[in-house]
Amino acid sequence: MAILSAQRIGLSGLQPAYSAAASGGDQAPVGQGLVLHVRNGGASSVTVTVATPGTVGGLAVADAEQSVPAAGAAFIPLAATFRDPMTGRAAITYSGVTTVTVAVLQV
């Protein structure tokens, strides 16, 4: 599991650096203005899952899932809702990682 760092988008813009999605998943910071940008260079869609560690009334909250189409991209907000109390970060997994790259952006 790789730990991703946020890249701040300044007034002059940003040329983000992307990392290969880790087969064991990634961890990312959470909070206002943070998004995960996922690029899928493959020929089939990939599902990105962000674990939701909280409960409401003793019931587990469903994890957030986003489908990223073949040769497509998606932005996933990294809200504080996804903060793991043990790590302070979001736990992210992918249904496939071949040709999938990711970057955490802060706006």
Score class of each variant (00 low, 15 high):
36 L>E: 00
103 A>F: 08
54 G>H: 06
7 Q>K: 12
36 L>I: 01
84 D>I: 02
44 S>K: 11
97 V>P: 03
63 D>Q: 14
34 L>T: 04
6 A>K: 06
38 V>A: 01
34 L>A: 02
102 V>D: 03
98 T>V: 11
105 L>W: 04
48 V>R: 05
78 L>N: 01
78 L>S: 03
51 A>M: 11
16 P>A: 09
26 D>C: 04
79 A>Q: 13
71 A>L: 09
33 G>L: 08
32 Q>F: 03
35 V>D: 05
81 T>K: 14
53 P>W: 10
52 T>Q: 15
30 V>G: 07
107 V>P: 13
40 N>R: 06
94 Y>D: 07
42 G>C: 08
66 Q>E: 07
101 T>G: 06
45 S>K: 03
25 G>R: 12
100 V>L: 02
64 A>V: 11
49 T>N: 02
88 G>M: 01
47 T>E: 07
12 S>I: 12
92 I>R: 03
85 P>F: 10
101 T>D: 11
14 L>P: 05
56 V>R: 13
65 E>W: 01
15 Q>T: 13
52 T>D: 15
105 L>G: 06
91 A>W: 00
93 T>P: 04
41 G>F: 00
91 A>N: 15
107 V>T: 15
107 V>G: 15
104 V>K: 01
78 L>W: 04
48 V>Q: 04
51 A>P: 07
101 T>N: 13
74 A>N: 01
82 F>T: 05
40 N>L: 00
41 G>A: 12
61 V>S: 02
37 H>L: 05
50 V>I: 12
47 T>A: 03
53 P>N: 06
69 P>M: 01
28 A>M: 11
27 Q>N: 07
23 S>D: 15
61 V>G: 09
6 A>I: 07
72 G>K: 00
78 L>A: 02
60 A>W: 05
39 R>T: 14
68 V>I: 12
